[in-house]
């Protein structure tokens, strides 16, 4: 067992655990942040996506030792008052169906908009191709990303 300290949703956080324990299970079991979901456990489905220094990593395969001293943001930390454009757009569009994959979808979408505030349909298809949804909400997710983009930039969606 080792101690690991990182900035989680803006707060310094220390856990004592095995170095190889996946970040997902540190978040869910040790820190009771259950917004991040377990899907495949092998970095395929995107359910467990969180941000590490702004990158959309798969927490199910990320050893907690990797995040030592770094900034981690989970779905709980996207905003503390549901004011993030992604959250507002998701609610307005009613993007989820069952909702299980949506924390991962939202974290990937937020990562995309941080890098490209006005993504095209092609950008969205590419960036979100690693987030699977068994309910098939892809169209609503795309619409929600365009809406969040317009909230963020004050401009309309761009298509190719």
């Amino acid at each position: 067992m080792e101690k690991f300290t990182f900035i989680l949703n803006g707060k310094s956080t220390t856990v004592e655990t095995d170095a190889d324990k996946p970040l997902l299970w540190v978040l869910r079991e040790d820190l009771s942040l259950t917004g991040t979901k377990y899907g495949c456990g092998m970095a395929v489905c995107g359910c467990c996506t969180v941000h590490l220094e702004g990158d959309a990593i798969r927490s199910c395969v990320t050893p907690v030792s990797r995040v030592e001293g770094k900034k981690v943001t989970t779905i709980e930390g996207l905003s503390n008052d549901l004011s993030h454009p992604i959250q507002r757009a998701w609610m307005q569009i009613q993007a989820p169906q069952c909702g299980y994959c949506q924390p991962g979808q939202m974290m990937s979408a937020a990562c995309l908009l941080a890098q490209k505030p006005q993504p095209s349909d092609s950008d969205i298809a590419q960036a979100m191709s690693g987030n699977l949804c068994r309910c098939g909400t892809y169209q609503r997710v795309r619409n929600a990303i365009h809406l969040a983009s317009s909230m963020l930039t004050g401009k309309g969606a761009t298509d190719e």
Partner: peptide, 11 residues
């Protein structure tokens, strides 16, 4: 690119 950086999955 974007959300699909190699090291998002590879450790």
């Amino acid at each position: 690119v974007f959300t699909l950086k190699c090291t998002n999955c590879h450790q």
